[in-house]
């Protein structure tokens, strides 16, 4: 049996059993849709944590008596640290200027205040690869020991909260995702089994007229392949439409601006489609194994 005959028979079967095929494809699609939604949620959470981590930095305040000629060497020392990605020096005047900007119309409260009253500082952006609370704490402790440094600040409380929250959500999403994956696998294979059993008579008649196992199994497998492909593509299409919709909302809403919603990475998208196809094909092969005995 050539591939062309196989496809012709599969499409003819699809036409003849359109209703059952449509229901199976919808079951596949809905199962994948729920799973893909959680995957999207997971990746956006991950994305948020990454972004927050990337934006998180250390603020190193220098002692007031630090001589100005020590600044370049301190800068060098800081940039030489492996955990540090970027260092920016903020002089007392610059800090004062920022404060003025921040206060806007109320900047007159600063009238008569010495522009040198704020200590000079270094803003440090931590390398994204070392975004770990333990290492940031360690780094802050090390810098704090330098004689020129008066204080090192970082959002420890925020990081603690973020870690607990993201860990919790990640666990929930992963467990739910796995449960959904098993549920999807169970529902899809059983729906396919029912479809195969519903066509038991057809298989029996084909067997009667001398059809080989490949002749009987071939169209079913092609149909399963198409069900997996169409079902998962449809589900991912819906998820993509939701993603675009949320992107639109993000652009319009002040609250959501900067959230930077991301889509499921393409490797995972391909993996979801491939798994769906594999699930349908394997489900069909298993369901047919019993029907094809002698």
């Amino acid at each position: 049996m050539t591939f062309a005959i196989l496809c012709r028979r599969a499409f003819s079967d699809l036409r003849q059993n359109f209703c059952a095929q449509f229901i199976t494809t919808m079951v596949v699609s809905l199962s994948i849709l729920i799973f893909a939604f959680f995957t999207l949620l997971y990746f956006n959470l991950q994305h948020c944590v990454d972004r927050f981590g990337a934006e998180l930095g250390l603020l190193v305040f220098l002692s007031e008596d630090t001589p100005k000629d020590r600044i370049p060497s301190l800068y060098q020392k800081l940039t030489g640290l492996s955990e540090v990605e970027k260092v920016t020096y903020i002089s007392s005047e610059e800090a004062f200027g920022r404060l003025e900007k921040f206060l806007k119309d109320e900047k007159e409260v600063l009238e008569g205040v010495n522009p040198q009253f704020l200590p000079p500082s270094f803003e440090i952006r931590v390398n994204r690869a070392v975004f770990q609370l333990k290492r940031i704490k360690q780094l802050a402790g090390e810098i704090d020991k330098w004689p020129e440094v008066s204080k090192v600040q970082f959002g420890q409380e925020w990081i603690d909260r973020l870690y607990v929250f993201s860990g919790l959500v990640r666990t929930v999403v992963v467990i739910t995702g796995l449960l959904l994956l098993f549920t999807a696998a169970f529902v899809v294979t059983n729906t396919i089994k029912l479809t195969v059993y519903a066509r038991q008579e057809e298989i029996e008649i084909m067997r009667l007229v001398g059809a080989t196992k490949m002749f009987m199994r071939g169209p079913f497998l092609v149909e399963a392949f198409l069900q997996g492909l169409l079902g998962s593509s449809l589900a991912l299409g819906v998820i993509f439409a939701c993603y675009r919709f949320l992107q639109g909302l993000e652009a319009k809403s002040e609250l959501l601006r900067g959230v930077n919603i991301c889509f499921i990475p393409w490797q995972y998208t391909v993996a979801i489609i491939a798994s769906s196809v594999l699930l349908c094909v394997l489900g069909t092969a298993l369901a047919m194994r019993r029907s094809l005995r002698l």
Partner: peptide
Amino acid sequence: SNAQVPYLRRKIGVIFQDFKLLSNR
């Protein structure tokens, strides 16, 4: 063997009381 059975069946025509026809074809 089971794989050879279909080739034997092609030499045999079988007719049943309940016809065994595919109603959707």
